[in-house]
Amino acid sequence: MFTFILRIIGIIILAPLAGGMLTGMDRVITARMQGRQGPPVLQPFYDVLKLLQKEPIEVNLMHRFYVYIALIFVIFTTVIMLTGGDILLAIFALTLGSIFFVLGGYASNSPYSLVGSERELLQMMAYEPMVLLTGIGLYYADNSFFIKDIVSAQAPAILSLPGIFLGLLFILTFKLRKSPFDLSMCHHGHQEIVQGITTEYSGRDLAVIEITHWYETVIALTLVFVFFATKAPVSYVFAVLACLLAYFLEIVIDNGFARVKWQLALDSSWIITGVLGTVNLIILSFFR
């Protein structure tokens, strides 16, 4: 019991550190791709620590409350996933976190964050089906919704779920808030609705949003990890490599594409989900 609590505390502390480091590497790699030198790798941490030191501005009472609730749900999801818990519970807790975040956008009454919230909802509509199919597919492959069973299977899940994995890679772009699907808010300055949902947040609240995103990055990559891990410890190395590769791919896509309209985002992700996800599941059901 004691070690379990220690593990949870470790996850809560280490996950955002890993997420922050990834974001920092992302910014350096992005800069190098554009022929710039880029900020130091620790820049995301500097940003967050700076935001924590700034004056808090309160728009209204509920506004910041939603952000903290979203953070709690995202932490909860991270803990479930990294302790090998139920993937369905994780998916729904994550969705709940996102919903609270959207409510935070609506709470401010600023037109920019209203547009951002609306787009965030559309984005959720676009990626949720694929996330659910991922959970279902993993169950079909390994007969369990528990991540600890899935990662200790004989064969890696990717062998039976290549289509679902590709679909997941597609919607990771939404989850990691990368172009072309960064409609609701994005990390680059000067986009068409400025900062979307985060427009009215400043100081500590913005720092919390950033930390939430670090957790979400870890969650997204854990989903990739699950596809490659098996009983053999060596596979964990491959799985981590696969995660890093997937993240790098997202950075390349981020730099290579402009933001698309929401119609295209919704259509393309549903088509991908429909084709890759369901066909994969149908083929899989023949072999069972």
């Binding site: 800069a31 554009q34 030198q37 900020p39 500097y46 940003d47 700076k50 300055g189 400025v194 900062q195």
Partner: peptide, 21 residues
């Protein structure tokens, strides 16, 4: 631009007064 690259110093052009310093 790449020639001067102010992001080296962590400078970001935000376009949002609530985020700016």
């Amino acid at each position: 631009t790449p020639l001067y690259d102010v992001e080296r110093f962590g400078i970001i052009n935000t376009g949002n007064p609530k985020h700016a310093d």
